[in-house]
């Protein structure tokens, strides 16, 4: 009897039901990134390139952000994730995890987690490189490159 019940349940698992859903935390994460990008580009619907993003992550941004998702040549800003080797961009780039932030040579900033807390960081020298002015609200997150590398 027990074996049969086990079998029925294992068979039930085999039913696959894929639903495109997003939790509140993910929505807020996209909202924070949107706020930062809109502020840095000074555009309401900036053209954004999602560099090394998974397909499902791209879909999340397509559905829940104000961005026009495009290729990196046409983009106003590049959002980067999962970069495992040193890299420089010709356009302003913004890192969305710690590993990309460490490997991106000229990223203007990053949004990542450290010591269990979310952090926003903007690098003064790299902002100057792309001639980006930061508004009052983001000014609190601007640090020098030397401090950011610590």
């Amino acid at each position: 009897m027990k074996k049969r019940l086990t079998f029925v349940f294992i068979m039930t698992f085999a039913l696959i039901n894929i639903v495109f859903a997003i939790d509140k935390a993910k929505l807020l994460e996209i909202k924070i990134i949107s706020e930062i990008v809109i502020s840095l580009t000074n555009k309401q619907n900036p053209k954004v390139c999602l560099y090394k993003f998974h397909e499902y992550e791209k879909k999340e941004y397509e559905n829940f952000s104000e961005f026009k998702i495009t290729n990196c040549q046409l983009a106003d800003i590049i959002l980067v994730k999962g970069i495992e080797e040193k890299i420089s961009f010709k356009k302003p780039a913004f890192a969305l995890d710690y590993i990309s932030f460490k490997n991106c040579q000229n990223c203007i900033g990053a949004f990542y987690w450290r010591k269990g807390r979310p952090q926003i960081i903007l690098i003064k020298e790299n902002l100057d490189l792309f001639n980006i002015k930061v508004n009052k609200e983001l000014q609190n997150y601007v640090v020098s490159k030397r401090l950011a590398q610590k």
Partner: peptide
């Protein structure tokens, strides 16, 4: 607190309660 910091706070709370 400014808007971004409020959003960060909300985000952290949402992550905790997820």
């Amino acid at each position: 607190q400014e808007d971004i910091s409020k959003l960060l706070e909300e985000y952290e709370t949402a992550e905790v309660r997820k």
